[in-house]
């Protein structure tokens, strides 16, 4: 498994919390960025505004997670340095959140898959042995509850709506499904984090996620894909998609072009 430069010589237990926080922060950052791409071009003003609210919540969450990440390793970098000066291989987000938005339906289906994980996950994290993590999770949990309500309702409406919308949602489902499995893969970091009471194993979220997803997909008249194949490589940083590089090239352009400048 690949590790980033700074963690190469360290043991899992030394870097696990930092890596864990990066995973939380990078998911929120990359997904928040993707949603922000919709601002101004949504299908209706009301939807445009709603999506921006979710994006703002996620960017706020990213800031909190990344700030606590730098606090954890006691290094001189800031949350912004982490967001704007790391290369793709140092990002620890799920592949699910970095793939392109596609149409509005695909964007909301991705959001739904993520929210359906985040809700039980953040709920569990709010009981974390690490007080800072518990506090962030408690705040993010409230936001995620509304995100899930909204994304689930949209997925149901678009799956059930018209012939055309149903087809589009079926295609989005086929595309996104193989990216959902990565959420539940435990690795050495997760095992360590679980052993010290910071968070449960991601795999333990499977059941709750299945329940939410099955219920929503059936209301949306969408058939849950049979395949259990899962892409991976985002959470570990071993192999991101090609898309993340483009996303970062855009997001980081000013910080990279004018080293040392403040904004």
């Amino acid at each position: 498994m690949a590790t980033s430069g700074i963690t190469r010589s360290a043991t899992v237990s030394e870097t696990a919390v930092f890596e864990f926080l990066l995973r939380q922060g990078d998911n929120a950052l990359v997904l928040g960025h993707r949603l922000s791409e919709w601002c101004g071009v949504g299908p209706a003003l009301e939807e445009d505004i709603a999506l921006a609210n979710t994006a703002l919540d996620l960017i706020g969450q990213a800031k909190m997670w990344l700030e606590s990440a730098v606090g954890e390793i006691d290094d001189s970098r800031s949350a912004n340095d982490l967001a704007y000066l790391r290369d793709a291989w140092d990002f620890r987000n799920l592949l699910l959140v970095e793939v392109p938005n596609g149409d509005f339906g695909q964007t909301l289906l991705r959001e739904f898959f993520f929210d359906a994980f985040q809700l039980p996950w953040l709920n569990a994290l709010s009981q974390s042995s690490n007080q800072r993590i518990a506090d962030i999770a408690a705040k993010a949990f409230k936001e995620a509850s509304y995100h899930l309500e909204r994304s689930a309702e949209t997925v149901i409406a678009l799956g059930d709506g018209t012939e055309q919308s149903h087809q589009r949602m079926s295609r989005a489902l086929d595309y996104l499904w193989p990216y959902t499995g990565e959420m539940f893969v435990d690795d050495a970091i997760d095992t360590h984090i679980e052993s010290v009471g910071i968070a449960p194993l991601p795999s333990s979220m499977r059941q709750a996620w299945n329940q939410t997803v099955d219920s929503v997909l059936s209301q949306a008249q969408l058939a849950r894909p049979q395949s259990t194949f899962a892409h991976s490589g985002g959470r570990t940083g071993f192999r991101h998609t090609e898309h993340l590089g483009h996303l970062l090239a855009q997001m980081q352009v000013l910080q990279r072009s004018y080293p040392g400048a403040t904004w």
Binding site: E46, I49, A50, N53, E153, A157
Partner: peptide, 13 residues
């Protein structure tokens, strides 16, 4: 239901 959600997003920002 949709109206309540939209109202939350539009008018309670």
């Amino acid at each position: 239901e949709h109206a309540i959600k939209n109202a939350r997003d539009v008018y309670t920002r």
